[in-house]
């Protein structure tokens, strides 16, 4: 590219730089990871639908999720196959499966996103501090990371939840407490390389302190990796929460995809009432898969080596 500093005769107007390639801005930059990736675009559409459902769940659900429905003669409408009134049929307790799945969408997304955010926050900070300061700080934080990494999630969550309140918040906290090591390790390894780069040295020369170097100069450079693992984290959190609820250690008063399947299982009608467990099961699969594909699209941007040659 031509250089703006070409010497010009004295008095001549400063030569204008030819327009360089424009930096991608705003939406175009956000769209970049998806361009040409059909799976990722499809996932985005699917996710948009789920997010819409999650946000407007109370208005979209035709019935109260825990309301029992009676026939005219006063008998419960148990295990109805899907009809015009109950799109996904009813449960053994005469509740509307469709409404439960819709309300469950909201809790799945909330749990997933909050857990991922908390996990990223912890992992990012641990990784930054460990990688940047090194020495005993690094050893201490990374050994802690190793220990946490070794804790098996479900057994730990089951034991912890039997001792604690069975609330969704505790489930989120437990997952965040066990998920962060992945982010921490990835971030640390990036920081180890970044802290030796000339621009960090330049920042130091220009009088920047540790905090400034860490959060202004290094952190933005590891955000792509942290973000990618955050997106995967949403998927892990949704499956894990569903598993915990399916095992019956969740909050019995909230409706989530996991608790719906737990209800099917404990009612022992799994072989009969397919309409009861297939919808929440499919939702879990579809949403987590969508998050994986989106995460992968971002990962290819963060790590160009993954791109197809």
């Amino acid at each position: 590219m031509a250089d703006a500093g070409t010497p010009s005769p004295p008095g001549a107007a400063a030569p204008r730089a030819p327009a360089p390639p424009r930096a991608l801005r705003g939406w175009r930059r956000l769209w970049q990871p998806f361009a040409g990736r059909h799976l990722a675009i499809a996932s985005l559409v699917v996710l948009a639908v789920f997010v819409f459902v999650g946000v407007f769940a109370p208005w979209l659900a035709p019935h109260e999720p825990l309301e029992k429905h009676y026939q005219d003669d006063g008998r419960l409408m148990r295990l109805l196959t899907p009809t015009g009134d109950f799109w996904f049929g009813t449960t053994l307790y005469a509740r509307d499966v469709f409404s439960q799945v819709i309300i469950g969408t909201r809790s799945a997304l909330v749990v997933g996103v909050i857990t991922a955010a908390a996990m990223t926050l912890i992992g990012l900070n641990v990784g930054l501090v460990a990688g940047y300061f090194g020495g005993w700080v690094d050893s201490f934080l990374m050994r802690t990371t190793d220990v946490v990494f070794g804790v098996p999630l479900l057994p730990f969550a089951i034991v912890a939840l039997s001792l604690l309140d069975r609330s969704t918040w505790w489930i989120i906290a437990l997952m965040a407490m066990l998920f962060w090591p992945i982010t921490a390790r990835v971030v640390r390894s990036q920081v180890l390389s970044l802290r030796e780069r000339p621009f960090i040295d330049a920042a130091r020369i220009s009088g920047a302190g540790h905090l400034r170097i860490l959060y202004r100069h290094i952190a933005p450079n590891v955000m792509p990796q942290a973000f990618v693992h955050g997106v995967f984290g949403v998927a892990w959190a949704i499956t894990t929460e569903a598993s915990i609820n399916f095992l019956g250690f969740g909050d019995p008063y909230t409706v989530s995809w996991g608790t719906i399947i737990y209800d099917v299982f404990t009612s022992m009608v799994s072989f009969k009432a397919w309409w009861w467990f297939v919808p929440p099961g499919l939702c879990i699969i579809i949403v987590t898969t969508a998050f994986y594909f989106i995460g992968q699209a971002f990962e290819e941007v963060a790590n160009p080596r993954l791109r197809e040659r």
Binding site: R197, P198, F199, A202, A203, H217, N221
Partner: peptide, 8 residues
């Protein structure tokens, strides 16, 4: 290494 002294 002034060439790489700017934060990318």
């Amino acid at each position: 290494s002034a060439m790489n002294a700017l934060n990318p």
